[in-house]
Structures are given as C-alpha cells and as structure tokens.
Nucleic acid binder design. Sequence first.
RNA 1: CGGGGUAUGGUGUAAUGGCAGCACGAAUCCUUUGGGAGGAUUUAGUCCCAGUUCAAGUCUGGGUACCCCGACCA
Length: 427
Amino acid sequence: MRQSHFFCKTLKTNPKEGDAISHKLLLRGNFISQLASGVYSFLPLGLRAHRNIEKIIREEIEKIGGQEVLLPSLQPKEIWLKTKRWDEMDPPLFRVKDRHSKEFALGPTHEEVITGLVKLAIQSYKDLPVALYQIQTKFRNEMRFYGGLMRAREFIMKDLYSFHADKDDLEKFFNKAIGAYEAIFNRCGLKAIKSEASGGIFTKENTYEFQILSEMGEDRILFCENCCWASNLEVAEVKDGGKCPKCEKGKLEKRNSIELGHIFRLGSKYSETIGLYFKDKEGNEKPVIMGCYGIGIGRLLATVVEINNDEKGIVWPKELAPFPIHLIQIGEGQDVKKVAETVYSSLMEFGFESLYDDRQDKTAGEKFAEADLIGMPCRIVVSERTIEKDCVEIKPRDEVKAELVRIDYLQQFFNSKLKVQNSKLQP
RNA sequence: CGGGGUAUGGUGUAAUGGCAGCACGAAUCCUUUGGGAGGAUUUAGUCCCAGUUCAAGUCUGGGUACCCCGACCA
C-alpha cells in the first residue's frame, strides 16, 4: 500500500480525549475515529489489526470444532420475554420499534437466538455436541463507556456457544475452549490470567474470566504471583494479602485488570426456557447442556496497545500488525525512488504486503516519527546512504539498532531471520 | 442512573463584560531532505435557545454533546 494514497492522517500531538494510553495512541495514529461516546469507526489501519485478531480467533476456535455462523442483531421482543431478560437486562438492552410498533432488541448477546436456532436442528443425542460461533456487532446500552475501545456501546465480539448431551461432555469442551483462549491471547502477545468470576445475568454457576493485569482495567482480581491463580474480587473467598488457596505459598495481591474474555457453563438455563430438548439413548427427553464463550475484539485490540507501547508509539506484535513491513523512502533522488519501487514490488513477490512511504513532501524526521507512532514490526529504509552500498536498512520496531542488508539478499534475509507473518487482508 | 468537570478555526489552546489572538494542520511558492526542518503569502472559529447589558466567548437560566468517578459488562 502506497502511503501517498493511504487513508490515514496521524496527529502530531496527543488528542485531549480520554486518558488511556491505548485510546490516545489509537486516535493519534488514526486507527479509529469517534462518532459518539462509546461508538467508533475503524479506519484502514485499525481494521487491518482487527481483521488479524479475527483471523487468529477463527483459526483457534475452528481447531476445537467451532463452526462460524452470523446471527441477526435485530431480535424480536418475544424471544427475550421467554428468558425474562427483556426486563432483567434493561438498561444493557437497546430496544427499538419497527414502523408497526413491533419491538426489537439490538442484540447484546445471542443466547436467545442461537438456542432457538439450534432447536430447529437437534432432536437426538446423535446430533450432539455442536459448537457454533460468530464474529458480530453487539449493542449494549451501558451506563458508561470508557477508554475508547475498552468499553464501547457498539463493539464486535466473538461469541461461541456449545451444546452438549451432559455435563461431562460440556466439561471436556470447556477445557478445550480454555486452551483455545490461551492460544488466542498468546498469539496476540498477551499473557492472560484465568480468573474465577461470577456469571452475572448469564448463569448462577461460577465462571472463568481471562484477565490482563493493567492499571487501566476496571476489574479487581486477587492474584498469586507464585502460581498465577486468580479470582475476581466479587467472588473471592480469600482476602487481599492472604495465602494462595492453590499453591499455598504465594501471597495474594489485589490488582487492576482488564477482562478480555469470559466463559460460562450455562447448563440448562436457556435450553429449558426456550425448549431445546433431545432424546437420549434410553429415549428420555432431556434439556441440552450449554456453554458460552465471549471475547471482545475491540477491547482485545485496545489492551494489546495498552501493553505494547513506548514513548514513541505503538509496538505491534507481529501477528497483529496492520502491515508486517513499513518501507520508507528517504530523499527525492531518482535512484532512491527507483530502488525503493523495486524493493516494494520484490517484497510483494515474497508475499509481504508492506506499507510503502513513497511521499515526496515529507521529511525524514516526519516519516520516522510517524512510522514509530503506528508501530509496524519491521522498518525498511531506502536512502542515498543505503543504495550506495546496494543495501537497505532494516530495523525491528522494538530494537534500537538497525542493520544493513544487501538488496539481492533480501528474500533470504526474510526467509531465515524475521519470519514476519503475511498479514494481507482476507477476501 | 447519582456525583464532578468541560465546550472557541480541521487539531490544541489564549482573551478584567469592551477590535476573537497564538501554535499546529491545510493551500501556494522558495529553500531544505537520516528524527515531526525554515521563510513568505493565504485559509478557517466562540455548541444550541433564551435572558441581563450601551456592549456577552466571558454573566444568568434552559438544552445538547463530550470527559472523569461510582454500580454494570467483553
């Protein structure tokens, strides 16, 4: 992508909005744009990072057997009355009316819809288990929004729902889902802590949250430094400063954290209210046992930025970077331009889509400052200085030192050393 | 929903009740080209509705939007 035509206007100084670092950097780097409080547009840079997270999630969820669907946001009032959540969930529920005054909810979550959907297909234990997921926009009429993407009113969530014949089978899948979540957060460059929590309006059973320690977080957890056991303060049966109940060695500390994901054993709560039953081997009718598993993708994106930044800007983990390479041309000379163009097309041939700063009216300092701000993992510079030696300069974003690499050696260099992932957009 | 705060060009900020100014950005030209460079010229603004006043960005009332803190959530 040529930067001369790229839809991205960065700001030289921090915007006044908000005080979360991730919020400031995402606005300043022109990854997102605010339309209203808690409502954001994703611009090309931000959308590319978002898509990269989606890609990781799709891969990991499909590995454990999830199949992707796409459910509607517009959901008739009746199905919400069935589970009593039409009233229980207000205010989080956004309600709208059609022209005939028929009422709808804008989906804040999809237990009602998916349970009804699965009911159409499940009759026998032979039809189970099933795991369906979607990556879709959620609407939540929350009292308050904060930190840009940290908590928005409209946001994109991955929600997975699993359906089982019995609790044992749910338990098996539940553990697989924990593994998938750990893989997803690892690939995003985050070390997530699994923490015990309350099920809120979803279930009475205890649930697991995936938390990232951060001062920005709104959640409070008790955390054991020794074994990483953790519990949300709202359900903790132990005290701050007490001994860890798991390893019995570590001291528990109260820490702020960001809730990235939440997984629930729903049991038969929704299958019973919506009427999702199946016949077991003996011919007895039983409610389907359910689990649900959510990740807020915008919040995950913001958290990655919150954790991975320095005084100059964002430092994207390789798999999430909007572009794997930022190619920068410095100087107006025809020779420099020619070499930069060649490098740009070579990179494409090697399978790397780079962001190519081909702008003629920007100074070197401005280009470098902007490159650091938007934070691609690998910077390649072509200038008079480098072409004299038939080289380009390569610098990883998280290192200070750059190295010169011969242009005819570039492909080997990438194959052997950097292994930057191709982050082209999916069709 | 309760509490606190803010609202001035595209962005960030000034202006005792008395000519709305500065910086950045943008535009044109020249110089510059390895860390947001310099000069010249230009561009664009007081959230909305009332009120007080000779005079309102400034004071009063109402509205709206946004930010922050609490309860809720991914």
